[in-house]
Nucleic acid binder design. Structure first.
Length: 458
RNA sequence: GGCCGGAUGGCAGAGUGGCUAUGCAGAGGACUGCAAAUCCUCGUACAGCGGUUCGAUUCCGCUUCCGGCCUCCA
């Protein structure tokens, strides 16, 4: 089965056909680094990490290029730096590092290229110049603006007419705009703000142009997939399309547009402005990154996902079952097989991770029931290979189940004591030790053959 | 106000024009000194009202409710 993706541009599920199967290219809008990322910001990072892994599986790791930008010039950054009393550079460096730590803990691979807006000012200026030359842009009061009237297709992507945009406008329109929908490509910077020399004076880029310039610089004028959150469809992606296609003489921009739904809290979008957010690092302080990742993938990427304790509990429990089964076959080598066909088919169907989990559960159930070493090796191989595409199940089972247990020696000693008590049929003492350990969060499992395994329950 | 999405069993969450996933929780059983883990069995749910159809949870229309975008936003 071929990979299918829901394409926002056509609002339909389509078979994915890369422009060049030897060089599959994907661009995803990355973070603006002014503060710690929250778990809502983590969703696209995880979702597109899975897509990246899947594309690498299908086309070969060396044949996929994944670009995710870092926006390090922005008014929110300027405001935050001022409020913190630190330089913009300090703030963006510190925040970008924190972002990397956070998403690494969530099991995300580094993108192939991670360009920064401030490293692409020449490309941004060049693109604006091209737009000026073709009269898609104009100067007004120190700004350079994109003229939406010059682009007959403007608004088609997000499905809104210009009349609607004007009627629905809730912001005051700057008086120097030719059209209320025109947006800024370049704006002047006062001396206390970051700025670069340009043909239009010292200034800084508008929000949308950086993605157009960076995708062109690293992936070319036309590429395969462009991803981001649902809230970027308008205006950000609409504007990117307008800028890029107009700067490229109408040649096509991204072919498949993939958008993830929101993380919600009590049914409402998680957002900084609403104050209902959980920082990634807050979540990581409570559960392993793999639990958060699993929890995130329990819903289809396009649907809203409510973030709560119950979801995390379910994810933890599910992962425990997998690692328990893997521990049971730790003495058997995994067969060199790929993911199970059912699992792969589910992921290839527009990244249907819930259905993929169902396939994974089948594998788990079969593994628990398998009684020949050959079957166990094959199922273990399929389980691990499938897990690798989702970015889960790659840890050593013992490490997962026991954690960084500093009291391991003491626990093992208590278990030995209990085994002696059992051998002497002193079950009262055996149960006392079990209870003592249970209070400390250690769960015991007596195995056939007189061996006792243990794991952390919480 | 305009434009998009949603509504599935106690919960999470797929999917399908007829055979009605999967996980959690729950009930019963096997196993166990007791447990845990595992295995077996058990739940006909698809917002409401019309329509199309031999047959609709699945297609169409309307209604209700929820969320999102239209302003920074993943």
């Amino acid at each position: 089965m071929a990979l299918q993706l829901h394409n926002t541009a056509t609002r339909r599920k389509e078979i994915f056909e890369p422009i060049d199967a030897k060089d599959v290219r994907m661009y995803v809008c990355g973070p603006t680094v002014y503060d710690f990322a929250h778990i809502g910001n983590a969703r696209p990072v995880i979702v597109f990490d899975v897509l990246f892994r899947l594309l690498r599986h299908i086309h070969g790791a060396a044949r996929v290029r994944y670009v995710r930008n870092i926006t390090d010039i922005d008014d929110k950054i300027n405001a935050a730096a001022k409020a913190n009393g630190e330089s913009i550079r300090e703030l963006t460096t510190r925040t970008a590092e924190a972002f990397h730590d956070d998403v690494a803990a969530l099991g995300c691979l580094r993108p192939t290229i991670e360009p920064r807006a401030t490293d692409h000012i020449p490309q941004i200026i060049a693109m604006i110049e091209a737009l000026m030359a073709s009269e898609h842009a104009y100067r007004a009061e120190g700004h350079v603006l994109f003229a939406v009237a010059s682009d007959p297709d403007y608004g088609e992507f997000s499905g809104r007419s210009r009349d609607e945009m004007i009627a629905g406008a809730r912001v005051e329109v700057a008086p120097y705009k030719r059209d209320p929908a025109d947006f800024v490509l370049w704006k002047p910077s006062p001396p206390d703000l970051p700025g670069w020399d340009s043909p239009w004076g010292r200034g800084r880029p508008g929000w949308h142009i950086e993605c157009s310039a960076m995708s062109e610089a690293h992936l070319g004028e036309s590429f395969d997939i462009h991803g981001g959150g649902l809230d970027l469809i308008f205006p950000h992606h609409e504007n990117e399309i307008a800028q890029s296609t107009c700067a490229h003489d109408g040649r096509p921009f991204a072919r498949y547009w993939v958008h993830n739904g929101f993380v919600t809290v009590d049914g409402e979008k998680m957002a900084k402005s609403l104050g209902n957010f959980r920082a990634i690092r807050e979540v990581l302080a409570e559960v392993p990154g793999e639990v958060a990742r699993y929890a995130m993938l329990m819903s289809h990427y396009h649907d809203p996902l409510d973030w709560n304790e119950d979801r995390l509990g379910q994810a933890k429990h599910a992962l425990d079952r997998y690692y328990l089964a893997l521990r049971g076959v730790s003495d058997i080598g995994a067969a060199p097989t790929g993911p199970s066909p059912e699992f792969l088919a589910a992921l290839e169907d527009d990244l249907n991770t819930p259905l993929a989990f169902a396939a994974l559960h089948d594998l788990l159930s079969d593994l628990n029931k398998a009684d020949t070493p050959a079957d166990k090796a094959r199922l273990k191989g399929e389980l691990l290979a499938s897990g690798a595409v989702l970015g889960i199940l790659q840890q050593a089972p013992e490490a997962w189940l026991k954690g960084q247990e500093e009291e391991a020696v003491e626990i093992e000693a208590l278990i030995a004591q209990r085994l002696s008590a059992r051998a002497a049929r002193d079950f009262a003492e055996a149960d006392r030790i079990r209870t003592e350990l249970a209070i400390r969060g250690i769960l015991l499992e007596d195995k056939p053959g007189g061996k006792t395994e243990w794991r952390r329950a919480v």
